[in-house]
């Protein structure tokens, strides 16, 4: 009987059902690829061709002018130094923010999962709840606090903000990871007389590589793509790439140079796209791990 049933069905599946499946999947793929395709081809065309031609068409004459203009001479408001300024600002924001938030998450996760500190679970509960609260609720008082301490509108300020708002996810990631490790490992280290920091640096941290990779993927894309914190806390000198991109797109005087806009957009998307394509399955694992919070 088991031999009969699939035999009766298979041809039907291969013909109509299978075709339907592929038609749906391919049209969905086209929908998802469309904006990327349009961005790439637009960024490679001169403006005359954009004005007259087909938005989907390949450039008849390939030119990288828009890319170099977007990188080094597009205007973001009054200054015309291109989006490269934003790129380097984003790098300067990204590196300390990622390192510090991962370190904070690992230490918190370790203390929360393996040590019993009174009130720690309450703290963690509030922190998690905080992850869901819209940032607008915290922004104004934070701005006041930072201006009072005199670090408002600085690199330090934006890094601190990224660490603060990375805490819930980072702590959760590492707490769950350490809680999933065999407890005997920790107990053995305790019996050997290991203290809090010894166990952390000698036993736990060396075992944390997978979680550190996942956390780094999450934080690199998250912080690179941030807009609202950069806008509010970084200050004019340190505006990240997303903010500069938005300025380029919205503050061009005269006719908009769509090819430059699209080249700038591609440049801003490059880092997270590279992370996505290089990390592959790790990226999905990162989202899934981050989704635990959801």
């Amino acid at each position: 009987m088991t031999a009969v049933v699939p035999q009766g069905r298979r041809p039907k599946h291969i013909t109509i059902g299978r075709i339907g499946i592929y038609v749906f999947l391919i049209s969905a793929a086209l929908f998802f690829l469309l904006p990327l395709w349009i961005m790439v081809v637009t960024s490679l065309k001169p403006m005359e061709e954009i004005r007259l031609g087909n938005i989907l068409a390949l450039p008849s004459m390939l030119t990288f002018d828009a890319w170099s203009k977007a990188w080094s001479s597009a205007c973001t408001g009054l200054e015309c130094n291109g989006i490269s300024v934003g790129f380097w600002n984003s790098v300067r924001i990204l590196i300390p923010s990622v390192i510090l938030s991962i370190a904070a998450g690992a230490i918190n996760g370790y203390a929360l999962s393996l040590w019993r500190v009174r009130g720690a679970n309450l703290m963690f509960g509030i922190l998690l709840l905080g992850a869901f609260i819209p940032y607008q609720v915290f922004l104004y008082p934070l701005v006041r606090i930072f201006s009072m301490t005199g670090i408002y509108n600085s690199l330090l300020c934006i890094v601190i903000v990224h660490v603060i708002f990375g805490l819930p996810t980072m702590t959760l990631l590492f707490r769950n990871y350490y809680a999933g490790l065999p407890i005997e490992l920790f107990k053995a280290a305790r019996i050997d007389g290991g203290g809090f920091w010894t166990i952390f640096f000698r036993v736990m941290l060396p075992m944390s590589t997978p979680m550190i990779v996942v956390a780094a993927i999450l934080q690199v894309t998250g912080i690179w793509n941030d807009f609202i914190f950069g806008l509010t806390f970084a200050g004019r000198e340190n505006l990240p790439m997303t903010v500069q991109l938005n300025n380029i797109v919205h503050s061009t005087q005269g006719e908009r140079a769509y090819n430059v806009d699209m080249a700038a957009t591609m440049l801003a998307a490059l880092v997270p796209l590279a992370v996505y394509f290089v990390s592959g399955r790790w990226f999905i694992r990162g989202i899934a791990a981050g989704a635990v919070k959801g």
């Binding site: 793929a29 637009t42 806009d261």
Partner: peptide
């Protein structure tokens, strides 16, 4: 296919917004 469906999630909302604004603008 999975890679294609998920890649937009890696991009920022600013990039997403600028790209769709360009595609949906009635003029061009």
């Amino acid at each position: 296919l999975r890679t294609i469906f998920l890649y937009p999630y890696a991009m920022s909302f600013v990039v997403t917004g600028v790209a769709w604004q360009w595609f949906l603008n009635p003029g061009l």
